[in-house]
Amino acid sequence: MTAPEIKGWRAVAGSMIQASYEVAFVLLPVLVWILVLLSLGKSQDVKTLAAWPFASLSLFSAMLRDGISAFHQDTTKDKEQRDLIVVFALIGVILSTVLLTLAVMKSTGQVTYLWSFFYETVWTFVAISALLLFVTKAILIQRKSYGRYV
C-alpha cells in the first residue's frame, strides 16, 4: 500500500470508530433505561418502551445537524447532498414524532390498539436512523478531522 492509501484507510477506520461512539452516545438514555428494566426483571417491557420512537427522533435530529455541518461547502455536489439529507432527516423527524405520540398514548391508555406491527415499524425507524446518523457522522469526521473530501 502507498502512503495516501494508508492515510485513507486510517481516516475511514478512525471516522467509523468515532461515529460508533457518537451513535451510542445518542442512544445512551434508552440504553440506561433498558439496563434499569433488565435489572428489575422486567425484560418483557423493553420491546414496548415509548423511548424507542424518542431514540429514532433523536437520531434523525442528530443526522440533520451533522448533515448540514458536513456538507457546508458551496459546491453543487454538497448542496445536493445537503438537501437530500435535510429531506430524509425531516421526514424521519416527522414520522418519528408521530410514532412517539402513538407510543405515549398507548402507554398511558389513551389508545387501546395499534397496528400489529407497530413496534417493528418503530425498530425499523431506529435502525434506519442509526445507520444514517452513523454514515453522516463518519463523513463529517472525515471532512473535519482528516480533511478528506470524497
Rank of each mutant, 00 (worst) to 15 (best):
M1A: 13
P4I: 06
I6C: 08
I6F: 09
I6S: 03
K7D: 08
G8V: 02
G8Q: 14
R10T: 07
R10P: 00
V12P: 01
G14R: 14
S15Q: 10
M16I: 11
A19K: 03
A19V: 10
F25S: 13
F25V: 15
V26K: 00
V26A: 01
L31S: 14
W33T: 02
L35Y: 07
L40Y: 10
L40C: 04
G41M: 05
G41R: 11
G41A: 07
K42S: 11
T48F: 15
L49H: 03
W52P: 01
P53N: 07
F54L: 12
A55V: 06
A62M: 07
M63F: 05
L64R: 02
L64A: 09
L64E: 05
R65W: 03
D66I: 08
D66Q: 12
G67L: 00
G67P: 05
G67Y: 01
A70G: 07
H72F: 08
Q73M: 04
Q73E: 10
D74S: 12
T75D: 01
T76M: 12
K77G: 00
K77P: 01
D78A: 11
K79N: 14
K79Q: 12
Q81G: 02
R82F: 00
R82Y: 01
V86I: 15
A89H: 01
L90P: 01
I91A: 15
I91Y: 11
I91P: 04
V93W: 00
V93E: 01
V93L: 07
S96Y: 04
T97A: 05
T97M: 04
V98L: 12
L99T: 02
L99I: 02
L100Y: 09
T101M: 10
L102A: 12
A103P: 03
V104H: 08
M105R: 09
M105F: 10
K106N: 02
T108R: 07
Q110D: 10
V111W: 00
T112G: 15
L114E: 06
L114K: 09
W115G: 10
S116Y: 15
S116I: 09
F118D: 07
F118Q: 10
Y119M: 11
E120T: 11
E120S: 13
T121F: 05
T121A: 13
F125L: 08
F125C: 10
V126E: 05
I128T: 12
I128R: 04
S129I: 03
L131I: 14
L132V: 10
L132H: 15
L133T: 13
F134Y: 15
V135A: 06
K137N: 10
A138S: 15
I139F: 03
I141K: 08
Q142R: 14
K144F: 12
S145F: 13
Y146D: 02
R148G: 01
V150E: 10
V150F: 02
